[in-house]
Design a protein around this nucleic acid. Sequence first.
DNA 1: GTGAAAGCGCTAACAT
DNA 2: ATGTTAGCGCTTTCAC
Lengths: 339, 339
Amino acid sequence: MTIYDIAKSCAVSIATVSRVLNGSPKVSPKTREKVLAAMNEHNYKPNPFARGLGLNSMKMIGILCTDVSDAFFAKAVSLVEHDLRKRGLDVILGCTGNELSDKKKYLQLFLDKHVDAIILIGSPFREEQDNSHIEKIAKQIPIITINSLLDVPNIYCVLCDEKEGMQKAIELLAKQHCDNILYLYDSLSYSGQQKLAGYKAGMQEYNLKQVPHLIQRIPRTLEAAEAITTKLLDSGVELSAITASEDLLAVGAQKALSARGIILPVIGFNNSILAECSTPSLTSIDNRLDVLCPAAVTILAQILNGDFAAAPSKTIFPSLLVERESFSHNKPNKKEAAL
Amino acid sequence: MTIYDIAKSCAVSIATVSRVLNGSPKVSPKTREKVLAAMNEHNYKPNPFARGLGLNSMKMIGILCTDVSDAFFAKAVSLVEHDLRKRGLDVILGCTGNELSDKKKYLQLFLDKHVDAIILIGSPFREEQDNSHIEKIAKQIPIITINSLLDVPNIYCVLCDEKEGMQKAIELLAKQHCDNILYLYDSLSYSGQQKLAGYKAGMQEYNLKQVPHLIQRIPRTLEAAEAITTKLLDSGVELSAITASEDLLAVGAQKALSARGIILPVIGFNNSILAECSTPSLTSIDNRLDVLCPAAVTILAQILNGDFAAAPSKTIFPSLLVERESFSHNKPNKKEAAL
DNA sequence: GTGAAAGCGCTAACAT
DNA sequence: ATGTTAGCGCTTTCAC
């Protein structure tokens, strides 16, 4: 069933059929009805390849993340897919892993596939040194980053102020008279840098001493977090609270504490399901994917619509601190506090 | 840069260029080299839409899951994407949610988009009553299901024997002289039925009494699992072990136990990151996504290759029980045991 | 082994 | 408001 068949069955030209297909106003209501009816009757669906050829677009958005099996990225993909679909946009997914060469490959692949835009999820797509490979792509198609910041034309960034988030977490602890606050982190991606900066700013703000052994970079595993925490505890280092760049690390630290029967405030990051599953449940900083993702898609839609003026190049939302047992065992109810 | 440009720059016809593009043997090595060189020099990439029009395929596979933000589905998507990409196949992702009408919509959408095949992830795509909507699609394009079973022509199922998995878990508990084994579950999807059947079979095998209040259907939330477990404990019901259809539920149950200082064997399902993060860490049944997914993609590749004879309509792998603290606090090391 | 030419199903400019 | 027609860039017969 093609546009020709529909045209024939209605005794109109293919141009007219194409017009109703594309919602052109230059069709009389009568013929429009007639054509629509025929399409319905024959259950006609336009061939997307032919359409793609003509329009040079198949309304597909490439979504890239380093790893969808990571809870944080998965949530973002889920939210983005949902909003994209609502606007009739398709999602082609790529999981790049952390190798730069693979990231480049995927970027090029999507470009070659003529996707309409690319959404980069997470800050692993911002390289420490050189992002010229992304800039190059951005010259050809719009790029949206979620939770990363790239100051490049045609790249639109939607992110959460993670530095402030972490800083407020430290403030909260400081106000509870915690001074020796451990910070566990695994990566110095843009996001990683922001969080670390937040920790340092918070510590400085409250004149807390920043000692090297209280800032620990470890692999992103439960075991590593548990091990380093245990090691610090055993070495007699004084700890009054633990913070981490990732819930997983905070859970590991919490396990080390629990194993020794020690109760300390622990604050994680991402407010993932892990925070809830931890025992005691974990206080965590939420980076607002639920608002970042819709915002990103809205901006994307504006751009695809040619409405560049309406598209902010940077959109930054505040973090949210979600308190659970690991912060205050004694408080009767959980509560959320906007930072 | 089109095929015409390349043809011109090599002084050959577009047909020849197309032939080298498609690896046809009817090209002399000399001209092939020449054309390849030109393509390289001009950094030529064939237009996928034009190609799609001609071949009626863009080598895209539709992947459907109800929710990628679920750890289990996310892992499957991740594994499948990886293997698909290795074979030069693209992934278009859809998250349908649990509404049947939405599932149908996505299925039709993918069909209309002329994807080459559809991979259904998880048993939520098998409806209890009527799966004619899937059968209809399967008449047009091949469908692969991961961890679900649909006995329909042109549908290829790759799954894990979850019934046996759960049964062996019960056996293990029975051998440790547990008799009052609670089973928590949330859904009666195909997978849900299998697990429940495994529980029942295991209980029967060891002549353990199956009482209604030891089989509890609850919402898929931590809170629900914790609440029902607490309620049972408080009501004086005797419990000697807890099993669940999902790690999340097992974690909830474990929390209830921990809160009362009770130590019981707890066994979850899916062997997700939650199992590791729980305290004590959770023994769990692994449904082998790491082998199901590659197997599914291999079968898919055979089908797309026209090699239907090589494609088994059902492929079933055994489960794996992964022991952690929740089963045996006293054992010094974790270990894996094939069921 | 290579080339010419006819599609593939649609869009859009142009003509009426 | 509607029809005609020329692409879009590739694949694939069919000749040579």
